[in-house]
Design a protein around this nucleic acid. Sequence first.
DNA 1: TTGTAAGCGTTATCAG
DNA 2: CTGATAACGCTTACAA
Lengths: 340, 340
Amino acid sequence: MADDGTGTALRRPTMRDVAERAGVSKSLVSLAFSSPDAVSPQRLARILDAAEALGFRPNRVARSLNGLRDDFVGILVADSRNPVFAEVVDAARVALSAGGRLGLMTSAVLPGSPSRPELDLEAVAMLGDLQPSGLIVVGSVPSMDRVVEAMGPARIVIASARPERLAGAATVRGDDEVGLRLVVDHLASLGHRRIGHVGGAGGRVASGRAAAFAAAMGEHGLDASRIAESDFSEAAGFRAAGELLDRAEPPTAITAVNDLAAIGVTAAVRQRGLTGSVAVTGYDNTYLAALGAVELTSVDPDNATIGRRAAEVLLSDEDPGEVLVAPTLRVRASSVPLGA
Amino acid sequence: MADDGTGTALRRPTMRDVAERAGVSKSLVSLAFSSPDAVSPQRLARILDAAEALGFRPNRVARSLNGLRDDFVGILVADSRNPVFAEVVDAARVALSAGGRLGLMTSAVLPGSPSRPELDLEAVAMLGDLQPSGLIVVGSVPSMDRVVEAMGPARIVIASARPERLAGAATVRGDDEVGLRLVVDHLASLGHRRIGHVGGAGGRVASGRAAAFAAAMGEHGLDASRIAESDFSEAAGFRAAGELLDRAEPPTAITAVNDLAAIGVTAAVRQRGLTGSVAVTGYDNTYLAALGAVELTSVDPDNATIGRRAAEVLLSDEDPGEVLVAPTLRVRASSVPLGA
DNA sequence: TTGTAAGCGTTATCAG
DNA sequence: CTGATAACGCTTACAA
C-alpha cells in the first residue's frame, strides 16, 4: 500500500513523501490539509492525488505536539460500566463528530482492589498530552483537581455530575429537582400521601435527589420524613425499603434514587406480599426499567440531550455555568394508584 | 506550580528545564526517566529533585512520536454500552497496569443514525498514531482490516469475539461450547428432554452459541430442532420463545443466547401462564440475571479472566492462537425441574 | 501562492 | 557515564 515506487515500501508515508511525489514542499502539503482553499487548485489536486496514491493520512500525534488541537476533544468517563454514562458519552461523540471534532474517550478510573476507585492518572495525563482543545468529563471523577491540572488550558465541561467547587468548568446535568417533582406529582395524583424515598447515600447525586424529594414533598404539604439510606445498588434498595415498610405508618409509595435500587424496593415489597398495593418508582429510565418483568415507572433524564449539550457547550465558546436538562416521566405499571 | 524561578511561570516544564535546573544535559534527564539505574545516584537524585520541584512529567505524546511505545497499549471496545465488554475492559486495564503498562481505552464505533454502527476511523487512527506496542480489541469491531492497518506493527489480541479471518491476531474468548454443554447437562439432569434455543442471529457469537447448543443436544441424543431465531434483545427473545411455545410439541426448557433475550423468553412464558413449568436459562451472567425479580440461571463466561488473559497474552510475546476460557454455570430459580 | 527554516518534547546515536 | 546532534512528523512564522 505505502509504496511510492522508490523502494520505501513499508514505512508509513509522511508529508515529505507526499511532497516529493507531488513535487512541492512539505509545508505546502501541510497547508493543503489544514486550509485547502489557501492553495492553488491544480497544486491542491496534485497533492491530494499523491496523498491518495500513497495512502497518506496526517499523523495526529505529531500534530498534537505543536499546540492546542482545535479539532480534537477528550472524553473522560468516570465509570465505564454505568449505562447512563455510556449513553451520555455516545451522544457527546456523535455531536462532536457532527461538529467536525474527534472525541477520544477513555476511562478516568482504574478499578482497583479497594472499592474506592482511583484516578488513572497516567491515562488522563496522556490524554492531556494530546493537547485537546476541550474535555468532557462524564460523571464524578475522583480527583478532579488532578484532571484539571493534567489538561492544561483545555476547556472543561462536566456532564451528568454536580459542579466541582474548583469551577471554571461548565456543567450539564439532568434537573433532578424537576425529576423528583414529576415523580411526587404523579404519585400524589394517584392518591398517595405517605410517600417514601430510598437513597441519599453514595455521592452528591444521591443526596441531591433526596433533597429534591423532600422539597417536592414540601410543595405538596406532605411529610418528607420517610427517607431511608440507600446507595445505588439493588441490595441497598431492598434493605432500605424494608426499613420503611416496617415502620408504624409505612409508605404507600416509594421513590428510589435509581432504577436498580427501585428493583430492590420492588423485591422488598413483594417479600411482604404488598405487590400491587405499594407504588414504586425509579430514576434514570435505564433499560432495566423497561424490562417486561420490571415495568418500572422511572424518570428519564434524557441522557442523549445531556451528552449533546455538553458537546455543544464545549464547541461554543461561552460558559453557561450550569445547564439543566429537563427530564420527563416514563409511567409504567409499577406506580399503582393508592388502594389498588 | 511550574515556576522555575526564572520567570517561565506558565509553560509546562520540559526536559530542558529540568536539565538546566539540575545542571545536566537533556539527554541525561531522558535517560534518568527511561533507565534510572543507568545514571549515577547523585545525578539521578538531583534530576529527580529538579523534576519534582518543577512538577515535570515526561510528555507521552512526544515520546510516541519516536517509535513503538513498549509501555503503552491501546484498548478498543466495540460497544461501550455492553456490560460484558465493560467487564473485560476493566480486567484488562488492571492487568496491564499491574504489568507496568498504560492502557488507553476508546470506543471503536461511532453510534450513527443507521443501526449499523460505523468504525470511528479517526479515533482508531489517533490511537494508532500513538504507536502502542499492542492493541486489545474487545468485541466484534466493524472493519477489522482498517483497524489492523491503522495500528501498524502493534500486536493485536482480540477478546470476547470470534477470531478474524485476517488472523495474525490471537483471540481470547469464552468457551461457548462448554457453556452450552453446561446448560444442556443441567437441564437434562432436571429431567428435560424437549429443550429449545432462542438465538442464532446477530453475529458470529450468536450463531456459534446456536451451533454449540445443537452439539450439546446431540451428545445427549436429544432433538435439536427447537431453535427459533433471535438476536440479543428482549423483544426478539420474547418473539422467538412465543414461536417455540406455540409449536405442537413445545419445549419444557428454553436456553437463550444471552440474559436479555432470556428475560424476553421469561415474559413469553409468563404470558402463557407457564411460569414455573418451563425452565429458562440465559448467558453471560450479567447483573440482570442476578436481579431478584429475574433470578435467571445463566452461564458465567468469567469476563474478568478473559480480560486478564488477553492482557497477559499481549504482554508475553507468544501467540497462543485461540485461548478458550472455561465458563461456569450459575444456577438460579429460573431453571425449574421438569414437571415442577 | 509557494518555499525555507525553526520549532514542539522526547528518544537514539555516537562521539567523548 | 555524559553531552552534542540528529531524528520523529507536523505546524507556523517568515521570506521569496
